[in-house]
Design a protein around this nucleic acid. Sequence first.
DNA 1: TCATGGAATGCATACGTATTCCTAGCCAAG
DNA 2: CTTGGCTAGGAATACGTATGCATTCCATGA
Lengths: 332, 332
Amino acid sequence: MGITSHDVARLAGVSQPTVSRALRDDPRVSQATREKVKRAAQALNYVPSEAGRTLSTRATRRIGVIVTDLTNPFYPHLIAPLHDELSDLGYRMMLITERSDEAVAEQKLLDQSMDGVVLTTATTDSRLPAQLEGRGVPYVFLNRDTGRAGDFASVVDNEGGGRLVARELVALGHRRIAGIFGAANTTTGREREMGFRWALAEAGVGLPENRVVRGAFEYDTGYRALPALLEADEAPTAVFCGNDVVAIGVLNAALAAGVKIPDELTVIGFDDLPMAAWEVFQLTTVRHDLRELSRQAARLLVRRIAEDVDPAGERLVLPTEFVPRATHARAQ
Amino acid sequence: MGITSHDVARLAGVSQPTVSRALRDDPRVSQATREKVKRAAQALNYVPSEAGRTLSTRATRRIGVIVTDLTNPFYPHLIAPLHDELSDLGYRMMLITERSDEAVAEQKLLDQSMDGVVLTTATTDSRLPAQLEGRGVPYVFLNRDTGRAGDFASVVDNEGGGRLVARELVALGHRRIAGIFGAANTTTGREREMGFRWALAEAGVGLPENRVVRGAFEYDTGYRALPALLEADEAPTAVFCGNDVVAIGVLNAALAAGVKIPDELTVIGFDDLPMAAWEVFQLTTVRHDLRELSRQAARLLVRRIAEDVDPAGERLVLPTEFVPRATHARAQ
DNA sequence: TCATGGAATGCATACGTATTCCTAGCCAAG
DNA sequence: CTTGGCTAGGAATACGTATGCATTCCATGA
């Protein structure tokens, strides 16, 4: 069925190893032979078998990427540039969702079928990193990490972003402020909350627990949190959301509840997804370079595979920037 | 470095083939030996090498999926259930974007590194299917196909969907109707347009070329098309969009242009993405079962790999349903 | 003229698993 | 007591590529 290097060898009248060398432009094969082999390969439409090569070289040129939910609009914006950069670096991307049975997922990661792994779903209690470590599989964190020393990670200055938002809200005169943060076992959730909280505290503004919600970085988290926050005795005049997707949930819930944005409620997101700029949202948010975030992760991983990396860990942090649009206003 | 079946064999005091058999519960190995081997494998934390298995069995349990742009909100809703179903069927998903250099992409598809391929980006003039055919790589079309006989495809009744919309618009009294359709070299674009057009013609309503736009199924297509359509002498009172993403572009453009939806313009989408139901859009659209569409494709491909399939081709067509929400109204 | 060395290529083998075929041992039937 | 058949496991090998090592051939220099 499949055409092998032996078939090419036969046609070209050389040995199989010579085919292998000629096609990879090994200087040890003469110009004439090289051309003869290439013509034969062309004629047979030969494509080297990846499995054979992998077994022989012990490199798959494949990278596994662990994601939770692709239908969450955030992830495609992470995955797409990651795919492109990996592709440029000569690697293919293998997508694995976290939901898969854990044992199965581990098998997939540990069977030597990938040269490296990108983790986008790290929680502070995940045991996967240790497994990979033990198996010698290079990996990097993207967007989230464990927060421990020794990580290889491409992340955002979440604390700084949280601070930016807090200062803006305070400057706008807001005092009853709410937060819908990410899960406490994610660094993105925790760091954004901490930066926000500390900067508020510096300004003497409190953030009581009854104005705080924590949940997954999903539309529904924002959509469901808003009604609860509005029920409180003193409704907040501003809410900082863990990310844009959550904020968009809030904006939709506000529309459903008849809450005027930004007059009655200021809403701030995080990430600046393209969607945030849509006319229907005009979401004020915190921008960072999502493309670069992914690219950096790809390059870091490839460096780690090549062992061209600081053994003590490398944590690449991208800066944030406040993006004023139409969902913020002075406290009434 | 890696632990192989030979290591397990040594520890268990048996031969390598016995390890292979024992771990795969081959009835030819005795209960006692099987347990001994499994304990040894457990102790060494043995995971079979995928490359070795692939080379030996000539099956990779890997499926390639070709996509254009993941950041287009439509694709994740196609890919996520596809991934899940493939995973349930024991396959992994390898993502490949169309933008990659074509030669490179072909290499990736033809190097025997996948057992099958799912094509989501077929155009009527694509040469990839022929390549795969020639190489004996099983493939199926998902969502789009070539429209030729012999295809293996999981698609939607696009024509029927187009008809549904045309009849609704006519019943609402619309006579100046516009269409923003998909590219003419995609079946999804063409069939939706044809169904729509024919049903309008049946009702005696015309669809002049100056009220027709064709373009990629992207946000920008809708966003840019609306101003052009509004400039015409007689602005349309209704516009049918090639899919929800395009429709959402139109809704945003309408907001920017100060056009009231639905009073001044009726907007209809196609697909019923979750996003269509968001309060900010409340998009009237055409629903089909996107999850089932992908699942069907996965199962069809696996059947084709097993050669348990009608050699003349199989085209699985899912029905459509009109979903009235808030972006349609009677012609003023 | 013969030894030396380098260039070009072939031979043998490794990679890790699955499978075909063979062998040893045992039991039961004659 | 022998023989046929069955069971459990091992030996050999295939899968396709890459590579270390051996070989051949030719040119060069002594």
